[in-house]
Structures are given as C-alpha cells and as structure tokens.
Amino acid sequence: MMVNAADIPLWAAVAVAFFLLVGATLALIGAIGFVRLPTFYERIHAPTLGTSWGIGGIMVASMIFFSVAASRIAIHEILIGIFVTVTTPITFMLLARAALHRDRAEQNGKAPDKHTGSGSGPEEIQDEA
C-alpha cells in the first residue's frame, strides 16, 4: 500500500510535522545527554527520553499520517509503542543490576552497598568503599 503526502489536508500535515519533530528532538537530546553525562548511572537516564515521548511523538505522527492519508484508522504503530514501553525497563534493569554487580565485585566505590539505608549520596558511598 502506498499513500501520497500531497493528498492530506494542511492541518494534518502540520500535526504530523509537529509530532515528528518533537519525537526526533527528544531522541537527539537523549543521545546528547548519553554522550555528555559523566557516570554510567547518570547515563542510564538519558536514553529514556527517546524511549518514552521520543517514540510516542513519532508513533503519533505516523498514526495521524496513515489514518488521514488512507482515510481509515491505522493504529498498528501503537504496537511498537507498547512493545518498547514494556521491554525498555527489562533491559535497563538487567543492565543496571549487571553494572551494580560488577562495581560491587571490584569495590571501586561507584555503587552503594546492599543496605545503605536511606538516601546515601555519592560522598557517603566514597567512605564506605
């Protein structure tokens, strides 16, 4: 199936462009933060910009575009959204646990002890290591 971008009305084109640019901007900011932030545990926050509303924006743009252009409801993009939302926590949690495990095994002071109690900042962790 192929649709032509010239067929769709102006309001839909503006909406598609808006959501597309919001999604791509968030993915780009996430990648910038991923390179700029100094430690692993901070870097783990950056890609979630792309996996939350970054994907959301581009999926909404794609849904609007194909629904309006083919003049029937096309919401199969929502499957990618659900899939990524459910799988991202699994990968990030596994990676975080692997990183904690490795940092604790090396005792390099980057990861907190198993029972630090409440709110241990980076300084306290340095002391414990």
Binding site: T48, T51, T88, P89, F92, M93, A96, R97
Partner: peptide, 22 residues
Amino acid sequence: LTSTPGSAWLEYDSNDNTVLLH
C-alpha cells in the same frame, strides 16, 4: 519509574522489600 526519565530502578530486594533507585 524506569519509563520516567530522571529516575531509574536499579535493584529490588525481596527479602526486606526495599528498592534501590538512582
């Protein structure tokens, strides 16, 4: 908590029911 940027779920301990966040 993981989908929210700014908080990451690191580890859950089922013995004392605590969770370690970053």
